[in-house]
Design a protein around this nucleic acid. Structure first.
Lengths: 252, 252
DNA sequence: GCCGCTTCTTGATCTGTATCATGGCCGTGT
DNA sequence: ACACGGCCATGATACAGATCAAGAAGCGGC
């Protein structure tokens, strides 16, 4: 199994390598964009105490499966995860990609069972946050309660953007929008916004954007030909940010 | 202005016709599917006290507009409302239809400003629920807090279903799915699941489903010809529930 | 280092839905 | 009652992206 440095470098360093995977929110570089945001020092200890960290997921491993009982929401510490649901005829619909600092699993709350599945796109370290504890905690911590409401609301607006993208935009616009979204999320983590490695396959991208693999390939080729991108397999370099922005904004 | 009985008949009867529009949750026939669900008698009084009811919206009137400051979420008491967002090039994307007993406006929480707009599709009575009061109340009422989380989670899973629909399904499948969704929501309110009046225009349906008006017309015509539906302008009768279900399930 | 499997690219053709165009209908206001 | 304007239906044509097909490149296992 090839091991990329990137896989583990983003989260706080592992203090020990016992079963417990001691990491804490306080020293985690991602806390700024993750749950602990807007929580003061003493409250953080309480949050800290309920969060569970476990062995990193290997590429392709399942984090949770649709229909399984809902217990926790999850924060990505390193790596990348895709969320998807299976249609009645057995096909997959990718509903989102999750990068370090981002939270997933909140769609399981309404039915006490996960409405979607989540799978690691590459080796991924995950924090599990038991929801019943979180609920109890948030009743006594207004800022946490508010943060949770905001997180869920954010998920709703993100989904609405995707709905609009799927409903109104051309293949080029969809791809441009996704690349810019990834670039922005990289920037938030102080990574390069112009050069990065896509953790997901072309199939996943197509699936997410409501397009076929072939179309994704063609769009990448076209954008490479016009000098907007440099594409080397999963390695992407945005050469003309302006042009990409314009391609995305044409209708988004 | 023509006045359809249906417009006002579903909500609790108006006790008086003063400015205050006295209606209470306790007697509202919709409480079973609305916010008060799972709240006991004494807590209900507190919730009751923060809810504001105002003059019914006329067809076409705006409930809130994207970008405007977020203060309340809204419950539909009678009539119907559409939610939509405006794309950067000025077009509309309808993101949902809301019927009596349903809650909208939760996408405004994340930014303290509405991410979408909402407009009455016909004369509509609305309950406004100030969110800061609701937040305070829910900190001391675990069942209310949980209900709010569930509502938002439900919105997320609904959006994911729409994403899948837009991404994977044909025109016929999309229309069939929408009709069945409306039928089910009618049934929940003890209305006919096989015969109803669509409150929205063909344009809105097309917009919501990522299709053009012409396509919606053609699908309706086709389904009428094959005996699945009887379509008389906005009046719909589902003649062959089985067939419609099958059309929707082909890929949903 | 080589083999085989999966992922990706590129080309040729097909198809569902958009687009364009026209006419009918229905509700609303005068 | 009538005329106007928005909404709806239907036909003809165009096109973006799907599908089908085949080969190339990357990657893990031996």
């Amino acid at each position: 199994m090839s091991m990329r440095l990137q896989d583990v470098s983003e989260a706080a360093p592992l203090r020990s390598c016992t079963h417990e995977y001691k990491v804490n929110c306080e020293t985690c570089r991602l806390s700024r964009i993750c749950l602990p945001l807007a929580i003061n020092h003493q409250d953080l200890e309480q949050l800290e105490s309920i969060i569970q960290r476990s062995k990193p997921l290997q590429k392709g491993e399942l984090l949770y499966h649709e229909g399984s009982p809902f217990q926790s929401i999850y924060a990505v510490r390193s790596g990348a995860v895709k969320g998807y649901r299976t249609t009645s005829d057995g096909r997959e619909q990718v509903t989102g990609f999750y990068f370090p600092g981002e939270i997933l699993g909140m769609d399981g709350i309404s039915n006490n069972s996960h409405a979607s599945s989540a799978r690691a796109l590459e080796t991924a370290a995950i924090c599990a946050i038991p929801f019943d504890s979180l609920e109890r905690l948030s009743a006594s911590m207004p800022s946490l309660q508010r943060h949770l409401f905001q997180l869920m609301s954010r998920e709703i607006t993100d989904d609405q953007l995707l709905i609009t993208l799927l409903s109104k935009n051309s293949a080029d616009e969809r791809v441009a929008t996704l690349l810019l979204s990834i670039a922005n999320r990289n920037a938030r983590r102080n990574l390069s916004a112009s050069q990065f490695r896509l953790p997901m396959s072309r199939v996943d991208i197509g699936n997410y954007l409501g397009l076929t693999v072939e179309t994704i390939s063609r769009v990448f080729s076209r954008m490479q030909k016009t000098g907007v991108l440099r594409v080397d397999n999963k390695e992407i370099e945005i050469l003309d940010q302006e042009a990409l922005q314009q391609a995305a904004n044409l209708a988004a």
